[in-house]
């Protein structure tokens, strides 16, 4: 084993790397352009969503094709509270988003977790599309396909409406979102390494055995579904002020597919994989879109490649390379 690999495998080193990455993200607006910082901001919001999605997909083995539903719940919560009720406190928005999404996830999850694999995917897709048509057709309530504006929320009680928009987004709101992402990443880490998280993995690998060992499979799947839904809603609520306008497209089934794509791109078998996938997806999409209007074709080809050749995603490729080198010693 090479010395750097030895260092890399230490737990304290991993924590150190995380802190360095976190600080880099924090300092990014100081040396990067506003545009890059803005993209990074959208990544933070998506990162929260895919963290939640992967609790279902990577850890519990359930592929949700309707997870955009919960992110839209969060996003529309932000739009409703700021636009219709003039509640501008971001903390209130986040709490309300968590409450609404948890209740909905508990109800929907109670139905969905009775099924696995393709039936689970289809059922979640149907719920996502149900909400899509609701948003689209009840326009007097939701603004229809034009959607709703999201007003600039107060952060920690501070009214920041005097600051220019991009500065607000790439400085104050950027840091705010990053801190929430950091907290939620830590919480998710605790969840997956807790006995609860281990039970989920046991369910994923062998549900019959888990049931035999006294784990209530459906109940645990249900818990995972609720946590996952709440995470997606927080992500959606964080994304809404950044994009400034929410529309039904947020919950269309192809958008759910995008979330799964990010997770797979980074690697669903690795805790940090979805986060890597999220950041790569957003910056790659930006780059490819600037080169060609046919970015979907290229992304479709990438997804096909991932599924066929590298289902472990970026994290999977890296870890297999590291292993290979270790084996060569």
């Amino acid at each position: 084993m090479k010395p750097w690999q030895e260092i890399l495998s230490l737990k304290s080193t991993k924590v150190l790397i995380l802190i360095v990455v976190g600080l880099l993200f924090l300092g990014l607006p100081l040396f990067a352009s506003q545009y890059v910082s803005y993209l990074m901001l959208t990544f933070f919001a998506y990162a929260v969503m895919v963290l939640g999605l992967n609790l279902l997909f990577g850890y519990t083995g359930l592929l949700s094709f309707g997870h955009a539903f919960f992110m839209a719940i969060g996003a529309y919560t932000a739009a409703f509270l700021t636009g219709k009720f003039s509640i501008l406190y971001m903390e209130v928005i986040l709490v309300v988003a968590v409450i609404i999404s948890s209740i909905l996830a508990a109800l929907i999850g109670a139905i969905c977790v009775r099924y696995i694999k393709i039936y689970f995917a289809m059922l979640t897709l149907a719920f996502g599309m149900l909400f899509y048509t609701f948003l689209l057709k009840f326009y007097y309530l939701t603004g229809g396909d034009e959607g709703m504006r999201v007003l600039r929320p107060y952060l920690l009680g501070f009214n920041l409406s005097e600051i220019p928009k991009m500065q607000y987004l790439t400085r104050s709101y950027y840091i705010y979102t990053l801190v929430i992402l950091a907290i939620l990443t830590f919480v998710m880490w605790k969840i997956v390494s807790s006995p609860f998280g281990l039970c989920l993995k046991a369910i994923r690998d062998n549900p019959e055995k888990a049931e035999y060992l006294g784990v209530s499979v459906k109940r645990y799947r249900w818990y995972a579904f609720i946590i996952s839904g709440a995470y997606a809603a927080i992500g959606g609520a964080l994304l809404a002020p950044a994009i400034g306008q929410v529309d039904p497209g947020l919950t269309y089934w192809t958008h759910s597919g995008t979330l799964v794509f990010m997770t797979l791109l980074g690697g669903f078998e690795n805790f940090f994989g979805p986060l890597i996938g999220g950041v790569v997806y957003i910056f790659l999409q930006d780059k490819v879109m600037s080169l060609t209007t046919y970015w979907r074709f290229i992304f479709g080809a990438i997804l096909a490649f991932l599924v066929i050749v590298a289902p472990g995603g970026i994290a999977g490729v890296i870890s297999s390379l590291v292993k290979k080198e270790k084996g060569g010693e």
């Binding site: 094709f65 995917a121 794509f261 997804l303 599924v307």
Partner: peptide
């Protein structure tokens, strides 16, 4: 390539196909 793979990956592969064909049509 995915006949022996998990259903979820088969679903994702056809989703990739959806993305590609959509742009072929636009092209």
């Amino acid at each position: 390539f995915v006949y022996d793979r998990d259903e979820t990956f088969q679903l994702l592969l056809t989703f990739a196909l959806v993305m590609m064909i959509e742009d072929v049509i636009k092209f």
